[in-house]
Simulated scan of single mutants.
Amino acid sequence: MDVVTLGPDEIRSAVSMPAAIAAVRNGFLALHRGEFEMPTRTVLRDGGFLVMSAHHRPTASAMIKTLSLDFDRDPAIVGTVVRSELGHGRQLVADAIEVTRIRTGAATGVATDLLAPPDAKTCTLVGAGGQAADQVRAVHAVRPLTELRIVSRGRERAEALAKTLGAELGIGAVVLTDPDEAVRDVDIVCCATTSTMPLFSLESLAEHAHVNAIGAYRPTMRELPDDLLADATVVIDAREAILEESGEIIHALASGAITEDDLIELGSALAEGVVKSGGRTVFKSVGVAAQDWAIADLLAQ
């Protein structure tokens, strides 16, 4: 058996964000076409361990990702991505931290390209953890930014991230302390936190704002208020996963703020277009294995 092992630096050098966005876009379209066998992920120890798998029928390839998550350690996410293909014994084993960061950012890039105003150029990032930087990189890849605001409970980490992204992307980056102030009047908001309560109010958002929410991945976690979901066009990554794992969607459904008919899967939106019910748009993602498969397949190629 031939095993190719890729660490974080090798993954970063092999996959650009525009390439990752294109691969994940194709992954969501393939998911919409029914090309994947993709069970809902296995969750152990209340989210402490996750196992995700996907089989892409046309290529007879499969990906399995195992993760452990502990937000009291750095890095919070540790694990591996393994890609196999029928017909030969070669396997790709890749660091799951980098794959997860890139694929999560890439999904945000796909959704932002579809949903954000074409002339969007300002962004607020709520959260400064391991997923945060690639949220901004992906947004910048599809909507070149001129202004970035970062708000986080850890100011020192937020300031370090602002310095890094400002220099890397060539944009002005500032750190704020009040989430409602930080999201006011911006075009795009990216939420990458482990919050259990909504991060800001609907009234603070511009009427044309697009919001990406990728941090909350368990039913007990929430980043968005019910009235935002009721007000906006809501696009999700995958219905089955969202209904089982997304705290904000589960809460909004229970409160009657939205119905399941209000939820549009990203693959469907890409293939068939989106009919907006209002000015604001939301992309809610808990992450699905097709995204990981897309990046693993890109690395394999």
Rank of each mutant, 00 (worst) to 15 (best):
L229R: 00
V186F: 05
A206Q: 11
G215K: 13
L205V: 02
L205R: 06
N212W: 04
E203G: 15
D231V: 07
L205D: 08
P225Y: 01
L229C: 01
A230I: 02
D187P: 01
A230E: 04
L228T: 05
C190K: 08
P179A: 14
M221F: 10
L205Y: 00
C191W: 11
L224K: 10
C190D: 01
H208L: 08
L199A: 08
R218I: 09
P219M: 05
V186K: 00
R184T: 07
C190F: 11
T220G: 10
R222P: 02
E181K: 12
A206W: 09
T196D: 13
M221V: 06
T220Q: 14
E207R: 15
A230Y: 03
D226N: 13
Y217S: 14
T194I: 14
E181P: 11
H210K: 01
D187Q: 06
A216S: 15
L228I: 03
S201P: 07
L224R: 10
P225M: 05
L224S: 08
T196E: 15
V211F: 11
D185V: 09
P219G: 00
I188M: 07
G215I: 03
A182F: 04
D226G: 09
I188S: 01
D180C: 00
L224N: 10
P198L: 06
A230Q: 02
E181S: 13
L202W: 04
S204H: 08
D185G: 09
S195C: 12
D187T: 01
T194P: 11
L202K: 11
S201G: 15
E223L: 04
R218N: 10
D227A: 14
L224W: 07
I188Q: 04
V189Q: 07
V186T: 02
S204I: 00
D227E: 15
P179D: 02
D231L: 04
M221A: 08
T220M: 13
T196P: 08
F200V: 05
T196G: 15
S195T: 09
C190Y: 01
E207V: 13
V183H: 07
D178T: 10
D185T: 12
E223Y: 04
D231E: 09
D178G: 09
E207Y: 13
A230G: 08
D178Q: 07
A213D: 10
G215D: 00
H208M: 02
H208F: 06
V186Y: 06
H210L: 02
R184Y: 01
I188W: 05
L205W: 06
P198T: 05
I188D: 02
I214Y: 02
H210T: 09
D187G: 10
L229K: 02
A230F: 04
L229S: 00
T193G: 06
R222E: 02
D227R: 13
D180A: 07
H210F: 01
A209H: 10
S201L: 12
P198R: 11
A230L: 08
A209W: 10
D178R: 04
P198Y: 11
L228S: 00
L224P: 13
A182N: 03
C191V: 11
D180F: 03
V186L: 07
D180G: 01
V189S: 00
L228V: 07
P219R: 03
A213C: 12
C190V: 14
E207A: 15
V211E: 00
L224A: 02
P179N: 07
T196M: 14
L228G: 03
L228F: 04
L229M: 03
E207P: 09
L202V: 10
M221Y: 08
D178W: 01
C191A: 15
E207T: 14
P198W: 11
